[in-house]
Amino acid sequence: MEPILQTKHLQKSYDGSHQILKDINFSIKQGEVVVIVGPSGCGKSTFLKCLNMLEPMDRGEIYLDGKSIEREGKNISLYRQKVGMVFQSYELFPHLNVMDNLLLAPRKVQKRKKEEIQKEAETLLLRVGLWEKRKAYPRELSGGQKQRVAIVRALLMHPEVLLLDEITAALDPEMVREVLQVVQELAKEGMTMVIVTHEMKFAKAVADRVLFMDGGIIVEEENPQEFFVYPKTDRAKQFLNTFHYAALEI
């Protein structure tokens, strides 16, 4: 099967010298869930931002459905509608209530009918257990609720691929679960997703393929059973060990 989203030789540096991404070749197929793990500062979040073109890359190509995407111009909007993104800090619009947060982009960007989107939004809210909160403002929601709204907001654009950037990193432990459950359900339904996370158990459960990044390169690429039990490289072993330590300390 042809990859739906692909990067070739993606490179990115800050201030011209510090190279944060060195030649990333990445691809994901329709319905696949790829989880990217790695130590802080390894470039995984930057990579997601480059994938969404929120960060300009220095060199390389991005292909969606086999077509090369231009880095500038009006096609970027169209591209971003197909490649949705959810952030660590939710970034709901604080001046709009939940429903208006959801309706804004489908109405203004995709020019869809309000009734149609509203119906769809209500169905999705019902599914993530937030239908009663549709009139609430972001400040009235918990972190976990906000993140579920953010996921629904991204889904309403009908993206072909969804990028999730450490979406549980800012949440209290008891809220992590409610958010990850939603993601797991999406995975079951065949949503194509690229997930950056520090939740190793979740990664193991949801991933079709795990990428281990370190120092701006993809060090290891494996199925989760293999990666989490028999990591090949020392760097990956070391990285996974830190999580075991963390678990021991508790």
Binding site: S77, Q110, R153
Partner: peptide
């Protein structure tokens, strides 16, 4: 800046 990014990520000009 995240608010700008959030808008951009939704395809807004």
């Amino acid at each position: 800046t995240h608010q700008y990014e959030s808008g951009a990520a939704l395809g807004m000009k």
